[in-house]
Design a protein around this nucleic acid. Structure first.
Lengths: 105, 105
DNA sequence: CTCCTTCATCAAATTATTTTGATTTATTAG
DNA sequence: CTAATAAATCAAAATAATTTGATGAAGGAG
């Protein structure tokens, strides 16, 4: 809706934040974020190798992080390259946590 | 494994962070944090009135937030007073998000 | 063209979380 | 003392998230 009578941005859209935190609410996905961050940009097949996780499972988790806008995705041919959305991570998390999740980024 | 040749504390306990984010991963709980923050210190019965939510449900969510150390709890007689653990919130979240979740705190 | 790789998606099975209503313990008030 | 209130906990039911293995679409390699 977002009608013109609604208070502008007084509603911080708790659902939207909840979605982002939900994406972060899993150790596997935190590990994934960390790995992607360290690699800069990685394709799924490399992640499968490094994480020792079935590909469909990986795609599932990547999608959750992507939907939460914590990742960027770029398609090159049949490959999909994922990278961290640092801007969004920074916007969300403290420096301390960013450093923990993304050391040397 | 965890052999002695492994780098110490390379794992910053992702499980622990995941737990905290899981606590934040629910719009009802974010609303709850916000309300508690604005009140400073509130007992469960007041929260039941303000949130229009069954008491057992509220206690369930409070427990999750407490376990994640996002809240403090103080018992006075039969009353339980909950308040925000601002230190932990600040440690975890960006200023922007802290402000959104805890306006005027 | 044919075969192979990459990756997303799907449906079913599994597992985890949440909701509900009842019960329980402790405390307070009359 | 007895009544009533505060809040935690419990078990069952309802929902939601995750895992798994299979399939399919699309592009690359020979």
């Amino acid at each position: 809706m977002a009608s013109s009578t609604e208070p502008i941005s007084t509603s911080p859209d708790l659902d939207l934040y909840a979605q982002k935190f939900k994406a972060l609410a899993d150790p596997k996905r935190l590990e994934l974020l960390n790995l992607i961050c360290r690699r800069g940009s990685v394709c799924v097949c490399d992640l499968v190798d490094e994480m020792a996780i079935p590909q469909s499972k990986l795609s599932y988790h990547l999608k959750i992080l992507l939907n939460a806008e914590l990742l960027h995705k770029e398609n090159r041919g049949t490959w999909s390259y994922y990278s961290l959305n640092s801007k969004e991570m920074d916007r969300l998390l403290s420096n301390e946590i960013c450093r923990v999740l993304s050391p040397s980024c």
